[in-house]
Design a protein around this nucleic acid. Sequence first.
DNA 1: TGAGAATTTTGGGTTGTATCCAAAAATTAC
DNA 2: GTAATTTTTGGATACAACCCAAAATTCTCA
Lengths: 141, 141
Amino acid sequence: MGTDTGFELSPRKVDYIKFINGKSGPVKTNTIADGFGVDPSTITKTMAELAGDGLLVYAPYHGVSLSEKGKITAQFLIKRHRILALALTHFGLSHEQACREASRFESYVSKDAIDQMCRAMGHPNKGVCGDITHDDSCLEG
Amino acid sequence: MGTDTGFELSPRKVDYIKFINGKSGPVKTNTIADGFGVDPSTITKTMAELAGDGLLVYAPYHGVSLSEKGKITAQFLIKRHRILALALTHFGLSHEQACREASRFESYVSKDAIDQMCRAMGHPNKGVCGDITHDDSCLEG
DNA sequence: TGAGAATTTTGGGTTGTATCCAAAAATTAC
DNA sequence: GTAATTTTTGGATACAACCCAAAATTCTCA
């Protein structure tokens, strides 16, 4: 669903969303700050922005959780990473290298391209750094 | 031949270098400004930076040309674009789509990854938006 | 060849993302 | 319920990429 193209999120925000997705319950500011080695105030500000985008529910002083939209976005971000990393291994890159390389550029790859690649690879379930789950839009076309 | 990893140039600078590479002789400030729809003063400033990086020879009021280093860099940038676009067509993207998509993220793909992909594809000479020429480092390994 | 036209550069300012620090506010723990 | 901890606020910095207006340079051609 949606008109999102997949690159309205900066690389840093992609990383934050993926990090939050990997934790359970509300995630505290310091947990994220520690995870990325940045000042907590940086996190406070960025979380407010992501909440403004409707991706997070932000309870000041209590932490953030993904909204429904945020969860869907996170699923896409993870799938995008895994599809790209898997694709790179088709060209001889090691799992490590593929995963590292994909992290560098994945933020700039559109949802359309990912869906197409996913179809071309037969909707693979095994990625190189985790399983791949598929959303409906990917299965169309 | 070098230690460049392939992503020390911002996307915009990559575009400028490719544009200059596609022109013959010294390229005038306004030619570039018109090509990208930006103010000439923006070009003046950015050309000074690229000259500072040793990629351009910049003669104020007379235009810029690629230095030897700049030519090598441009060759890599073009090859990178074409390798990535070609790779994307392997996943069912049309030539147009592959070319457009590659443009978005190519700046963030390392030289190592490109060399590896190039080898895996058997050093192809035909890309989807132009021929591919190979440098030595790609042929090693 | 020299003055006006066109081009280019300089200097100063803006925007957006991502960051930091110090001080204030809120929460938590004992 | 006060002290310690965490978080937020407010103010700054850095950087890339951009714009505008004014100054400098180069070009044109009568």
